[in-house]
Amino acid sequence: MSRLAARFAALKKQGRAAFVPFITAGDPDMDTSFAILEKLPAAGADVIELGIPFSDPMADGPAVQASSVRALKAGASLPKVLEMVRKFRKADGITPIVLMGYYNSIHAFGTARFVHDAAAVGVDGLIVVDLPIEEDEVLRVPALAQGVDLIRFVTPTTDDARLKCIVADASGYLYYVSVAGVTGTKSVPEEEVRAAIARVRAATGLPCTVGFGIRSPEQAAAIARIADGVVVGSAIVGKVADNLSAGKDKIVAEVLELARSLAGSTHAARHGKVDA
């Protein structure tokens, strides 16, 4: 069983939703970023989305764009992101890591070589924002052959016919984009998400996480009652931005504190004990 399948199965048994933090690899520098990454599981992360910085992140709002800029300025690159995962895996063999980014980074690295290297360092899944189902075969098939899941999106604009095509070749889990828009700019509409998740559940047995627009522990708890996972990105990278001048220790502490609080409310949500 893959690390992702094992993690979602275990969470299901415990009756909990997954807390899925997103950080941009190399933000604000490789050293600080790794210090955050290695401590995220202890802060309550069930799955970690690790962003591959890209110069032109078209689907991202200002917070994630800025984190990409900081990472690239500090010299981040795809080989360094893979190296970061390799280092993480030395100490943690169970927390799934999903790389998230744009296709040009992988294209430039070479798709076959990337899939091989990603599997070798212990990457479990890939989320490629600009690779819709019409274009994803070129990455999805070789990735799956190496045991790496390509995570597909479902969005508010996905109708039932398209949903069927999306889940047909999906693996790992599904990522429901809670709002039509870029990351971190609108608030998650709880009722619409509830209806969408019901549709997804009717179409597939795969777990479904929800992201885009979840910032607070309250919102995380609300989504945790509906979905199998809660993704928080912009609010977390925002903590990096807020503490830039305070230095590495403060950045790491602030990010982990927010992660603990979001994880706490995500994990407690279905048991009626919501921390706020």
Partner: peptide, 12 residues
């Protein structure tokens, strides 16, 4: 060529 856009845009 192709259609390398976010899933939200694909139906449109």
């Amino acid at each position: 060529g192709g259609r390398f856009v976010a899933e939200t845009l694909m139906p449109l």
